[in-house]
C-alpha cells in the first residue's frame, strides 16, 4: 500500500490539466492541497480528495479555486489514514469487486490500533466518507463485542457512574438472565 501521502509536504501549485480523474495510474492528475488542524499540508490527488464529500462540495461551490483547503476539524494523524483508505477505495470504483473490497477493508482495519479507529470516526464523519464510517463503526463494534464491561469502559475511557449497589443489581440480573454465559 502506498504511503506517499503520509508525508505532508508544502508544494507549489500544480496546474497540469486533469483529463482522467478516477484512474489509479493518474500520476499526472490534478493535486489538491488540504491543510489539517495541526497545520500540516497534504497534497492529495483530486480523485482521492473528491471522495471527501465535504471537500467535493467545496469545489462545487468554488470550481476555479486553487487555494489550499483548510480542514479545521481534521488532525494529521487520522487524516493520513483516511487518505490511505480512500486511495484503496477508488480502485474499486473503476473495477467493482465486492469480495476484494471487503477483503481490502478488513485488512485496513486489522492493522489499526483501537485508538486509530476511534480517531478516524469523527474525521470520516466530518469529511462525509460514508463507506469508511460504516467500516470504522463496524470495526469498533467488532472489537468490543463479547467483551466485559470493564474492557469496554477502558476502551472508550468511560467513567462508571453507577453506585456499587446499582452495578451489583445489574450484574445479578444479567447472571440470572444468561446463567450460562461467562465474561471474558
Amino acid at each position: 500500500m502506498s504511503s506517499s501521502a503520509e508525508n505532508p509536504t508544502l508544494t507549489t501549485e500544480i496546474t497540469k490539466p486533469s483529463t482522467e480523474i478516477a484512474t489509479e495510474t493518474a500520476q499526472s492528475a490534478k493535486k489538491i492541497n488540504l491543510k489539517t488542524s495541526d497545520d500540516q499540508i497534504f497534497e492529495v490527488e483530486e480523485s482521492v480528495a473528491m471522495e471527501f464529500a465535504t471537500v467535493k462540495s467545496f469545489f462545487e461551490d468554488a470550481p476555479s479555486s486553487t487555494d489550499t483547503v483548510p480542514l479545521p476539524n481534521v488532525p494529521a494523524k487520522p487524516f493520513s489514514q483516511v487518505i490511505e483508505f480512500c486511495k484503496e477505495q477508488i480502485k474499486f470504483k473503476a473495477n467493482p469487486d465486492e469480495t476484494e473490497k471487503k477483503k481490502s477493508n478488513s485488512e485496513f482495519v486489522k492493522e489499526k490500533t483501537n485508538e486509530d479507529l476511534v480517531e478516524m470516526i469523527p474525521v470520516a464523519n466530518y469529511l462525509e466518507i460514508k463507506d469508511l464510517l460504516d467500516v470504522l463503526n463496524q470495526a469498533v463494534a467488532d472489537r468490543i463485542q463479547n467483551r466485559s464491561v470493564e474492557y469496554v469502559r477502558s476502551f472508550f475511557g468511560i467513567d462508571n457512574d453507577f453506585t456499587s449497589e446499582e452495578e451489583a443489581l445489574l450484574r445479578e440480573e444479567h447472571a440470572w438472565a444468561f446463567e450460562d454465559v461467562d465474561e471474558d
Binding site: N146, V149, R153, I158, D161, E167, E173, H174
Partner: peptide, 15 residues
C-alpha cells in the same frame, strides 16, 4: 452494530 446479546451485559457500562 453490536450483537443484541451484548446489550444486556453492557448496560452496566454507564447510566
Amino acid at each position: 452494530r453490536l450483537p443484541r446479546f451484548c446489550y444486556f451485559n453492557l448496560r452496566s457500562v454507564s447510566q
